[in-house]
Amino acid sequence: MLSRIAESLFWIGRYLERADDTARILDVQLQVLVEDPAIDEAASCQQLLSVMGVEGHTGAVNRWTILDLLAHNVDSPGSIASAITAAREGARGARETLSTDIWASINTMWRGLPSARTKRPPDMFAWVRNRTAMVNGIADGTMPRDEGWNFFVLGRSIERVDMTARLLSTAALASDTQVAWPTTLRACGAYEAFIRAYRGLEGDRQAAEFLLLDRWFPRSVVSALMEAERALSRLEARGQRSGFGDEAQRLLGRARTELEYRPLAEIVEAMPIEMERLQRTCAAASEAVGARYFSHSDTHAWTGGVSL
């Protein structure tokens, strides 16, 4: 498969997941802002911006700034609108390799953006979740399980690790964790599963454990890491007797085993730092995938020369 197309599919996977997860995170945060009377809105909004990697914003921050920068504003790189636009742009460039159904579902989502922006925030977030679920469902039902699929899943999984890590950071940083954890679980669609798994609401530690380590719940960090590793090993397509030749696979595998084998308390205690480390791993893995499969050596700018 063409490197450029593989890269597009990888990023379509990432952007769609980013739109989905950003909607989930915002939904939680805005709810916390409403429900917690004691909260310092400016500080917690500022914190959210920094967790989401939005830099260079000056001036007062409130829930409207957050909505603008992370949801509505196409020009803000961290926003849902920009993620959807980027996914659609990628799909347009890879259109001949996508099924008409996938293309149409992504295109329809992009075309619905202007009207989605006029919805009430919770409705917009629900719309984003539904739409991305639809694209994922169509992808799941119609994409051949070829390289393209693996890159799509790989991008989606790496992004999911990254975003769940951010979600965990925001929960850990919240002033009132009593409110934050249940809402975080709800944001992940994990609330019911968690309650069933732990037979009643146990507490912060268990919630963190569930979102980090649960092997059965698909949005947990470990699940997403495993998914990414599987996609990578399918791409590798040749068994290795020992170790891992692929840098991305090595990075993700190490991150996963560290999470799984370290005492949970250690991680929970330093959650924001640990999560930042995880995000850096995701970035490094993404780069390793690019270096191996997307061969960035192209895009020369040519200069003409003549001699007398």
């Binding site: 498969m1 063409l2 490197s3 450029r4 001949e96 390799t97 390289e147 192209d298 895009t299």
Partner: peptide, 28 residues
């Protein structure tokens, strides 16, 4: 449409490279 219905790759200039008088495309 043409690439899809012929079942061939749709490439951009940056996907191709000429080396030693031969043309190749960059794939995974």
């Amino acid at each position: 449409l043409l690439a899809r219905t012929m079942g061939v790759e749709l490439v951009e200039g940056r996907d191709l490279v000429c080396q030693q008088g031969r043309v190749s495309m960059r794939t995974t």
